[in-house]
Design a protein around this nucleic acid. Structure first.
Lengths: 360, 360
DNA sequence: CACATTAATGTTATCGAAAACATTTCACAC
DNA sequence: GTGTGAAATGTTTTCGATAACATTAATGTG
């Protein structure tokens, strides 16, 4: 079968323990022996057996991630952040994906990771406060870090400033003199989505603005598209759309463009996330940036730090969000304000067409 | 520390071997004993130790994936397909991500997975034929499956019909009476990108069409955007753009829209991949679909099947691509053909504006 | 009733690496 | 030259689960 210490030891003419010393970089091995062992390792193509290492060491130097579907761009970035930081700290990363956020599935995923003897677990799945606390209680041998769990939970968490970010979006649209708002939220089960919606709602009612309708999307472009089509089919009148992520905002823009409703003038749109694509939407999207990568990185950093702390202090870190203003929002053009200018353009265009028509 | 068989056995009043029999679902255990053991397992919250299992069983029932960055949407879908199929066949999945496609990194990743005693490895990183063959040769104890490796390599592979798909895109644009083509490729290191470019080139030269310029992008929207800006800055004239993926096509569309160059009329654009967003671009993108999920799934399916085959037969599966026609392509409007129609529209618009202007 | 058969369970050895402990060798001090 | 300590290496035991083998008890058969 596979090459083990025994084979290496035999070839190098030493004991297995000496081989172990070499692979672990112990300093009490003579240079000549070390060389001989390393040569044997290379010659045989020795690869350590993680299972055996885990067993004898007791710990695995591995961090587990329980995550939503990585096909969601934000999720993939968070996972990247986690992996990267884990790797930097000398940890491996084991990823377990849960399709839906059924609690049983999540527990099973954690059990799966626990069976791999992971030392830490980062959970990036929407959970209620109770669920998070229950997990910590149930899996006492594991150290948890949660991402985007409700604030004030008695667990370690790292969170984006969803509510504040949402409020900034509203404030910006109010500054754009918008009055009637359409909301497109994420799935209600998502903590992030709930927080954003709450932020929107708070700020809108506080400023006496009108919420025309609220649609629950599923994060992808189609749900944004369908929301707008439905709203327009119902002849609802709005001059601003708040969208819970950029991908749905793409669908929103598509529907508006398709129907010839001018963005940003007639309807302004603000997204959330600032994914790299959103700068290239038509028009480029005003959005609220959150730093997914940093979220993942900080989750790991704080988790590893927290174990050195006293047991009853939690890491509760909230990362800032910030408004990125692009062309999908603007102050409403007063009717007729630019009309003369547009008229001039039209005349010019007309003349051009006319002449080309005559030439044919 | 953690709960082991010993603890369970003691509580249930049986031997550890009996506990093992229960957890492995052996049939020669009396129902009462089984119940007693299961109760003990639940009471203690026993979780098996994968390392120990691996060690004693010899095999891990795990499949390794070496993959590019999962932040690329297509990659994430492939990984999903692999995981899903592996899971279905009773295998776990260990993911190792390599940042760049440096060969040393890839080898290290495989070694890492091998140390976890994976039984199979799916490689989704651009490799040359030689590299792929070398890996198979070096890691004799592993069973490999490659995704998108050059055809006719002497290894197992699953591949999308890049070249054919690319040709379909060209044929479609030729049917749209396009003459001057701009190319935006993916990174040259990518096998998929090379195959697509080759397909474009072949079909274009065969039909005597003009390649105005070729830009090498890095898969993201910005590189598509920059390509167009550069081409226009150099006053290049083209009426069709072939783009190696949809995300870059988004950037292409953005640049064209921004400059008021009408898509599809003045310039038609075809992407590649058919990611879910592309139906919601402005305008919705004509593109070549490839089924990433199926690619991942088939990779695993064939890999598991192949080990039952004779050693010197390779699985070499090529999955079809298909053209999805949307609004980013069209037959070129003959100058003046629709002019009268447009003129009528203009007149209507003018009247509307005029009246609103007078009202103010 | 003695003996074969099977069901249910227990005992021991094993996987590969590493920790704990043991031994050997050599250098140096007194 | 004997004792002390450190460096280099070897031996034994351990981790947790399981395969291989061993035992016991119960059942059935001629």
């Amino acid at each position: 079968m596979s090459v083990t210490f025994k084979d290496v030891a035999k070839l190098a003419g030493v004991s297995t323990q000496t081989v172990s010393r070499v692979t672990n970089g112990a300093d009490n091995v003579s240079p000549e022996t070390r060389d001989r062992v390393n040569q044997a390792i290379n010659a045989l193509g020795y690869i350590p057996n993680k299972g055996a290492q885990m067993l004898s060491r007791g710990k695995s130097k591995t961090l587990g991630i329980v995550s939503l579907d990585i096909a969601l761009h934000g999720v993939a970035l968070i996972v990247n952040g986690v992996r990267q930081q884990a790797y930097e700290k000398g940890y491996g990363a084991a990823l377990s994906i849960v399709e839906n956020n059924e609690f049983g599935r999540i527990k099973a995923a954690i059990r799966e990771l626990a069976s791999q003897q992971v030392d830490y677990i980062v959970v990036n799945v929407p959970l209620t406060q109770e669920m998070a606390e229950q997990l910590v209680e149930q899996f006492t041998s594991l150290n948890f870090m949660f991402i985007d769990v409700p604030e004030h939970s008695k667990v370690n968490y790292v969170c984006a400033e969803h509510t504040e970010g949402a409020k900034m979006a509203v404030q910006h649209l109010i500054a754009c003199q918008r009055e009637n708002f359409l909301l497109v939220t994420g799935p209600n089960a998502s903590t992030g989505s709930s927080l954003r919606r709450a932020g929107w709602r708070d700020e809108l009612t506080q400023n006496g603005k009108n919420i025309v309708a609220s649609y629950e999307g599923d994060w992808d472009a189609q749900s944004g598209y369908l929301a707008i089509r439905d709203a327009l089919a119902k002849k609802q009148s709005f001059d601003a759309v708040l969208v819970a992520n950029d991908q749905m905002a793409l669908g929103v823009l598509c529907a508006l463009n398709e129907l010839g409703i001018s963005v940003p003038d007639k309807v302004s749109v603000v997204g959330f996330d600032n994914i790299s694509d959103s700068a290239f939407f038509t028009p480029p999207l005003t959005t609220v940036e959150q730093d997914f990568l940093a979220l993942g990185q900080q989750a790991v950093k704080r988790l590893l730090d927290s174990t050195e702390q006293s047991p009853h202090s939690y890491c509760q870190l909230i990362l800032p969000t910030r408004l990125i203003v692009r062309s999908s929002t603007s102050v409403k053009t007063k009717q007729g304000e630019n009309a003369q200018e547009i008229l001039n353009h039209l005349d010019k265009a007309r003349a051009l067409l006319q002449s080309s028509l005559e030439r044919n």
